[in-house]
Simulated scan of single mutants.
Amino acid sequence: MDASNPEFRWPVRVYIEDTDAGGIVYHARYLHFMERARTEWVRSQGVALRSGLEDNISYVVQKMDIHFRQPARLDDELWVSANLVTSGRVWFGFKQQVIRQADGALLAEADVKVACVALDSGRPRALPNAMQAIVREKSAN
């Protein structure tokens, strides 16, 4: 994947609440940034998040492998990518990157596996038809 031309990216600015006393982003904040990008990716595909809740559907991070390369700092403007790279019957996988807009530096990257579960039981369930169609379309490209 080319970090300078990701398929989907979401802009994020680093605020004081994201940093320690030295102005460096807390490691856990990268998880927040990536979650936002995945959520916006879903929205960009035309999937209404509230309708999933009404249909007893939730998506949960099952697995994440993250590599922190360089720190983001207070006031940095970032691009956070969320690119679908693989899928199964009840899950899909994303490759995500956090890139500083000013210089294109790759700050963090992660492989994320998201599972579809029944909201009431937490048990795995098949991806809804609309999400399966999106996954098929993205896999074909």
Results as ranks from 00 to 15, higher is better:
V90H: 03
V90M: 11
V90I: 10
V90F: 11
V90Y: 01
W91C: 06
W91A: 13
W91H: 12
W91F: 13
F92S: 06
F92V: 07
G93W: 00
G93V: 04
G93K: 14
F94L: 15
F94W: 03
F94M: 11
F94K: 00
K95Y: 14
Q96W: 10
Q96L: 14
Q97K: 08
Q97S: 07
Q97C: 08
Q97Y: 03
Q97V: 02
Q97H: 10
V98G: 01
V98E: 03
V98F: 11
I99C: 02
I99K: 05
R100M: 13
R100C: 12
Q101N: 11
Q101K: 15
A102R: 03
A102L: 02
A102S: 13
D103L: 06
D103K: 05
D103R: 09
D103H: 09
D103P: 06
D103C: 05
D103Q: 06
G104D: 07
G104A: 06
L106Q: 05
L106D: 06
L107V: 06
L107P: 00
A108L: 04
A108G: 05
A108Q: 04
E109K: 12
E109I: 06
E109T: 10
A110T: 09
A110R: 08
A110N: 09
A110I: 09
D111C: 08
D111H: 11
V112F: 02
V112S: 03
V112Y: 03
V112P: 05
V112C: 08
V112M: 08
K113S: 02
K113F: 01
A115D: 05
A115S: 12
C116V: 02
C116T: 07
C116M: 05
C116G: 00
C116Q: 01
V117P: 09
A118F: 08
A118T: 12
A118C: 15
L119W: 00
D120L: 09
D120E: 15
D120M: 13
D120Q: 14
S121M: 02
S121E: 05
G122C: 10
G122Q: 14
G122P: 14
P124G: 04
P124F: 06
P124Q: 10
R125E: 10
A126K: 12
A126L: 10
L127W: 01
L127A: 06
P128D: 12
P128S: 10
P128K: 07
P128R: 13
N129S: 13
N129G: 13
N129Y: 09
N129D: 15
A130T: 09
A130D: 14
A130E: 15
M131D: 01
M131H: 04
M131P: 00
M131I: 15
M131Y: 08
